[in-house]
Computed example of a mutant assay.
Amino acid sequence: MLVVRPIRHNDYPTLHVCAEESGHGFTSLPVDEALLHERIEHSVASFSKPVTEPDGEGYLMVGVDSETGEMAGTTAIEASIGGDVPVYSYHISKIIHSSQKLGIKNVVRLLTLSNHYAGCSEICTLFLRPAYRQGMNGKLMSKCRFLLMAEHPERFSPTVIAEMRGISDEHGKSPFWKWLQDAFFHIEFTHADHLMGIRDKSFITELMPKLPIYTNLLSREAQAVIGKVHKYTVPALKMLQKEGFVCRDYVDIFDAGPTVECDLHNINSVKNSLRATVAIGQVGNSDFLISNTSFADFRAVATKAWYDAESNTLFVNQETLAALEIHQGDPVRLLPM
């Protein structure tokens, strides 16, 4: 059974492996020892911090195989982004150029540098190692964040976003970055990607073009990938779209991957989750995501259970109780699958 819990200091070695396996474009999990240790430290402090409103906390969690103790992947929430480090994106808009005399009308897209999502919560760092990409594991790693947010909404912003990885090849080269590189930055995408991962964004302010950019001046290759996601990110995007997330025409400034957003209270897994009392009993054949109601000691699993609506009781087995570190009669938050 996979159990999601807050990361610990001794999880660093496998977190580093996850960072290496995640590949280029995964800026929230850089292959940098100091930064990874910093993320762990910040998460440990955030989970133990009393909070009444979001203020830069970062919650990094891991999925752990309950039988082997091996880390299967990571998932995270940033409570409020853009405070200490600016969060940049391009906004896509349209402008019409027309001449009645010549009978010509052109609709042209513009890219405008924006800091629109400052203060929003962000779900990020979702990575599942290849050996564990099966069964309910992917849904657990993604949706457990919504169980946490539903149970503790005061810790998060009313708007939740996710930045989706844009298109790049197996060597980490991005068609969208290529034109930026040639015209403004003169550094490789992997270098820029690394600087973003280690939160060194000063070069963006110094070198990024400040005026709106006409997309028809970009190469055809760059234009073609605007708002598109990496092939490995397609399942994650589809899952978020089913949750109610939509793109409001904001894209990443390096690989042009879309940013999607949803109001916290409108996320389907938040709306459809509920609290119940847990008991040991016949579990039936229905799939559930289940979490305890603790924050500092958050635990979540995907398993078979049976929910009795009349008594508002969720029946599970002893293994599930042990995984969630709770006892019979305790409250849980559940999401029918």
Rank of each mutant, 00 (worst) to 15 (best):
G83D: 05
D193W: 01
C18A: 15
S291Q: 05
H42I: 07
N312C: 13
T159Q: 10
T112I: 01
D11Q: 08
I96K: 12
T205E: 12
V31L: 12
H186W: 05
A279M: 08
L102G: 12
N312L: 03
T27N: 03
K201C: 05
H42R: 15
S219E: 09
A256T: 03
V108Y: 02
T313F: 00
G56F: 00
I267L: 02
L314S: 04
A222E: 08
L321A: 10
L334K: 07
M164Q: 11
G284T: 00
G281D: 05
S22M: 10
W306G: 04
L237A: 12
V316H: 06
F26R: 08
R129L: 13
D55L: 07
L289Q: 07
R5V: 13
V31A: 06
S273W: 00
C247T: 10
Y214T: 09
P235S: 10
I204Y: 00
K210R: 09
P130Y: 07
Y12F: 15
A222Q: 03
N268S: 08
I161V: 15
M1N: 14
T125C: 14
N312Q: 14
F288A: 10
H230M: 06
A309D: 13
M239D: 13
Y132N: 09
L111Y: 04
S273H: 00
I198G: 09
M1W: 04
C247F: 08
D287V: 07
K228D: 10
R155M: 05
A279F: 04
I326C: 11
V64I: 15
P212I: 05
M141E: 05
A224M: 11
V31T: 11
V85D: 00
R133H: 05
S121K: 03
V62Q: 07
F203V: 02
C18P: 02
C124R: 10
A34N: 10
E38D: 14
A323Q: 14
I204S: 01
D330K: 08
A296I: 05
G166D: 06
L148N: 06
V31N: 09
S99M: 03
F298C: 10
I40R: 06
E20M: 14
E221H: 04
R199Q: 13
H194M: 14
